[in-house]
């Protein structure tokens, strides 16, 4: 494992820790899209089916279990915790799941590496992860007030896939020049979706202003 991959994983993990911290410490999930969080549960459930079929490393298994556990607990807090659920911006979080999930599933049926259940579901999870942030970005745009923890959460979540892109370039040149179009292109799309957010995040940070996205 190279340093970019590790940095990417740690950024991803940190983003989730920040989100859980926000929810647990402030007992609030304002500004967080439940739609996006539910899509991440689907992403992890469909991607990590190989937990049962293939052992890669202790690190790999542990991280997979952590991502599954934390994403499920975030959704649990937002849906069922008696205080947290009242802070959920339901009226603004209107993006439809199936607008994203169904096209991704059809695309995975058409474009995949191998036509097996595990491989198609893995491919579906890669496509879905690329666009799963959209409900969150829409919600942020509608929010007049983005708190720091939410802003940092989304920034780290975007930075994670950007670091994976660097990792893939590094692996291409240091390993056997293997081409992996499905994750590469999806990861590129995923990172591009954050471009606008990154711009305003960095601008607000430089000017020491509160983060706000133009409507």
């Amino acid at each position: 494992m190279n340093v970019f991959r590790l940095a990417g994983d740690m950024t991803h993990l940190l983003s989730i820790i920040i989100l859980l911290l926000k929810i647990r410490a402030t007992k609030s999930c304002t500004g967080i899209s439940l739609k996006t969080q539910e899509l991440y549960v689907i992403v992890f459930l469909t991607r990590y089916l190989d937990l049962f079929t293939k052992y890669i490393s202790f690190y790999n298994t542990t991280m997979k279990l952590v991502f599954l556990g934390t994403s499920i607990s975030i959704v649990w807090y937002m849906r069922y915790h008696k205080v947290v659920k009242q802070t959920y911006n339901k009226d603004q979080d209107t993006f439809r799941h199936y607008f994203l999930a169904i096209p991704c599933f059809l695309l995975a049926l058409l474009i995949h590496h191998e036509f097996t259940v595990i491989e198609v579901l893995w491919t579906f999870s890669i496509y879905l992860e690329a666009v799963a942030i959209l409900p969150q970005l829409v919600l942020l745009q509608r929010s007049r007030n983005i708190d720091n923890l939410t802003g940092n959460y989304v920034f780290l979540l975007g930075a994670y896939r950007a670091l994976y892109l660097v990792n893939w370039v590094y692996r291409y040149f240091t390993e056997n020049h293997l081409v992996r179009w499905i994750p590469w292109l999806s990861g590129l799309v995923q990172t591009t979706l954050y471009a606008d957010f990154f711009y305003y995040y960095i601008k607000s940070w430089k000017n020491n202003e509160k983060l706000q996205l133009p409507a």
Partner: peptide, 10 residues
Amino acid sequence: LQQDSVKDEL
């Protein structure tokens, strides 16, 4: 072009 199916990433 070779395509890789190794899933050692997260």
